[in-house]
Design a protein around this nucleic acid. Structure first.
Lengths: 183, 183
DNA sequence: TCCTACTGTTTAAAATAATTGTCAATTGAG
DNA sequence: CTCAATTGACAATTATTTTAAACAGTAGGA
């Protein structure tokens, strides 16, 4: 992480000494010295005090600090992040990458027999699409019902009310995409 | 700050137990319990471990956490933030509020006698404007030179090369504005 | 019912962060 | 140069976080 150098450069930029900043933050100059040399990891409370005294927000501090790094392209199956929707109990939604950094959200969905997302009414803007990979699923969009089998797909405006139900006897898998990812 | 509730809600949303998250982060469930109940302020290192295990970035975590609070309207003189430009040595730039949250940046600039911003070439897009409050300043914009006195002002496209020099004998003060604040 | 497996909480002990006081190096004024 | 003031760094102490282990509550199955 190296928050030490980051803190030091911001402090210097503002023309503050360790003692001056320490006084404003209610800490000691020694502490700042240790933090800036990365000899200790400050508590969130301490860091907040320091940033408030500069002043700069936590989000700002970390947004300019966080690794720009090489963009991640490939994701192994165990790197997907599990998303547990509030209502639908047993449905498994596994998201590729993290939604907030992209304008496209791709999910690997698993519906056990009997699974039902329920009739969620209008949700986010954007579009949703998916293709059934295994098993079958009954999809209802804006009142129209269809049973989809492997190879079948769907594509609709996310604002339309929609519902997914596995009325078959085997697990159903769907790969879907949304844009933008206002999950 | 209340990072406890924030952490808990994110953890729950992902369907993780304290123990599960603790194992992934290399911490203990007890620690997470204490943090979530705000009975302790975790070190930045610990919080980073937890967020990496969720996963969510520090910037994301704090950006959704940081107080939306009532928007700040009034700023006392001692609440301005001093901005020390890289090149120009003695010039004092005091910024109203924080630039990143707004689309407008207002500065209180002070030029001691002899101060010179140097001929910075093209900078950011947007517009810049200002009014001289005290003393006088020689402003060069796109090759055109003017000496401005109290009450005088300027307004130009930020992409044009510009330069400020105090060729008088007294300190000069200028109140300026830029938009957008890509400082 | 009992048992197992899970949840989150709480406590003393261990590990770590923060303070205190001191130090050498630097800077500016006389 | 000399002195005073200020800077950042460091060691030892104090304070806090973190751990490890035990606790109580819940849910499900035999």
């Amino acid at each position: 992480m190296d928050i030490g150098h980051k803190l030091r450069s911001i402090r210097k930029q503002r023309g503050l000494s360790q003692r001056e900043l320490a006084a404003r933050a209610g800490l000691t100059n020694g502490t700042i010295s240790l933090i800036e040399k990365n000899r200790t990891s400050p508590s969130v409370a301490s860091l907040k005090s320091l940033l408030d005294a500069i002043p700069i927000s936590m989000a700002e501090f970390f947004s300019t600090l966080e690794e720009p790094e090489v963009p991640k392209v490939f994701y192994r199956a165990d790197e997907f992040t599990e998303i547990t929707p509030g209502s639908a109990g047993q449905v498994s939604l596994r998201q590729l990458g993290n939604a907030t950094d992209h304008s496209l959200q791709v999910l690997h969905e698993t519906y056990p027999p009997g699974a039902d997302t329920g009739p969620e009414l209008l949700s986010h803007v954007g579009e949703e699409a998916g293709i059934v990979v295994k098993g079958s699923v009954e999809v209802t969009v804006d009142g129209v019902v269809e049973e989809l089998h492997p190879g079948d797909g769907y594509l609709f405006d996310s604002r339309l009310p929609h519902r997914f139900r596995n009325i078959g006897k085997v697990e159903c898998e769907v790969v879907s995409a949304c844009t933008p990812p206002t999950f």
